[in-house]
Amino acid sequence: MADFLDAPGVGAAFVEIIKSAEEQISIITPYISLTPHNLKYLQSIDSKKVPIDIVYRSDTTPNPEDLAFLKQLQSARIYKCDDLHAKCYMNEQFGVITSMNLYKHSQSNNWEMGVRFSRETDPDLYAQTSEEVDRILQASSPENSGRTATTATANQRTYEPRKPTRTISPKLKVPPKKGLLEKALDSVRGEVAYCIRCGETIDYNPEKPYCPKCFASWARFNNPDYKEKVCHKCGNKHTTTKTRPVCNDCYKTYYR
């Protein structure tokens, strides 16, 4: 369930987003002026090579020292977006939609509020926010391009989601070891399987082990090694991934 945050709560949630990230961080804020703590946490997560997408408003000028700091982060990509007013901070686990800019004065002096939501307990809100963050990124241009978003066209997309480097295990492309009767029944009625995130019943396909809703959420960060909760084959609770969507028992039974 989403939680209400006051100004200190928003600041604490931002730090938690940075510290707990393992796959991706998105920072959407019209104005940027970093506190010493912001600098330290961003630098620490950069050492772990966690990708960071940062978008600020194109007609603003971040503190030059802060901008120079962000540019030297090896895993950061910085963008400008026309007419940006939204403030949103998120990683692969949870996010915050808030009134507060990532700005020293805002964090120390302003009355601010926000809402914290989780991918696990608020999947629809998380997925919709992720999609909107993607739209903002697609409407943005690289900070050093000298070109604002209004001049970008559909054929000149400057933002591309980060691509995973691993693919599904070749062994899982082989049909399960079943008898002729089982195969005949499956060919007629389709083989029942389970979404590895929510457990919903879906067609068996180890290359596409998500229901449509969970796939939209997974595709936001596109990490084939992110840990899920359900075996695609048996539907029981097990740690699985898109790369390995079946539990060890099912793997041994059907693929070895």
Rank of each mutant, 00 (worst) to 15 (best):
E92Q: 07
E92Y: 06
E92H: 04
E92V: 01
E92T: 06
Q93A: 12
Q93N: 08
Q93F: 02
F94Q: 10
F94I: 10
V96Q: 08
V96R: 02
I97Y: 01
I97K: 04
I97T: 12
I97L: 08
I97S: 05
T98I: 10
S99D: 06
M100I: 11
M100H: 06
M100R: 04
M100G: 08
N101I: 07
L102P: 00
Y103F: 10
K104T: 09
H105N: 15
S106M: 07
Q107P: 07
S108M: 14
N109Q: 14
N110D: 14
W111V: 12
W111R: 13
W111K: 14
W111Y: 01
E112T: 03
E112M: 11
M113T: 01
G114A: 04
G114I: 07
G114Q: 01
V115T: 15
R116M: 08
R116G: 00
F117A: 07
F117S: 07
S118T: 15
S118M: 13
R119Q: 03
T121W: 11
T121K: 14
T121Y: 12
D122Q: 08
P123I: 01
P123K: 09
D124I: 15
D124V: 14
L125S: 11
Y126P: 03
Y126R: 11
A127S: 11
A127Y: 03
A127F: 00
